[in-house]
Design a protein around this nucleic acid. Structure first.
Lengths: 119, 119
DNA sequence: GAAACCGGTTACCTATGGGAAACTACCCAT
DNA sequence: ATGGGTAGTTTCCCATAGGTAACCGGTTTC
């Protein structure tokens, strides 16, 4: 009989940890934006609009604010003629790359398993 | 000037891979259920209701069907007196554990970084 | 002074996710 | 025959996520 599996202290920590992480990373666009910033370095709002395929300004704005609050990306306003804003992934944001890599790796294997089964 | 970062072949594969994976793993409960099954082995519907804190029968049923379709969990009906059903994570489902581990690891570090900053 | 680019915000709408509770159907024990 | 356990399904309802489109203030260019 399996009981209280999820009541052990270690397991509760894991569950809340996963909940925390998924809350921060939830939504349709976060991984796209992060991935783009990881490869592109400093990028401006319009750069991101063009690179992140299909995203609307409203969503980009919202997601960037979210991630800025969580210190995953930094926002720098430059006092140029038409004000430009640079977004960059923070050192902290870069700690997410193992997660993203694992997910990408799994997703690729998933595709392969579907094709190889000719399902 | 950064351009066409997301247009390279390798990057597109990555993006679709992430999209695939997140679609399969989306929702509030999948990680909880998977995590519980990973630790608990074979479990029945009511076991899961009791272990996965707060889940409603409808959601559990739906999520299990989802994951069964994606071959992440298996469902076995036993011909006992009141019919019992066993759910178990598949070998394939177990390939998700690196992802879950990375997410949990990050979530724990996230908590620590918040406390250590006394933010 | 009109158009066009920057970095957004606001209003509006819809689809989906997810929760609560009732209900089904079958079996067992009292 | 009543209550309880098994494994769900169904209905109804609400909140949130996310999309579209218009708008805004500032600046540069024509």
């Amino acid at each position: 009989m399996k009981q209280n599996i999820n009541s052990t202290a270690g397991c509760k920590v894991r569950i809340t940890a996963i909940k925390d992480a998924m809350e921060i990373l939830s939504g349709k666009w976060k991984f796209h934006i992060l991935g783009t910033l990881m490869e592109g370095g400093k990028m401006r709002f319009m750069d991101l609009i063009r690179e992140v395929d299909g995203i609307a300004a409203k969503m980009l704005s919202k997601e960037l604010q979210d991630m800025e609050m969580n210190r995953l990306v930094s926002r720098t306003v430059l006092n140029t003629k038409p004000v430009t804003v640079e977004y960059e992934i923070t050192e902290y944001g870069k700690t997410l790359s193992p997660i993203i890599d694992e997910i990408a790796k799994w997703g690729i294997a998933y595709r392969n398993s579907i094709y190889s089964q000719a399902e």
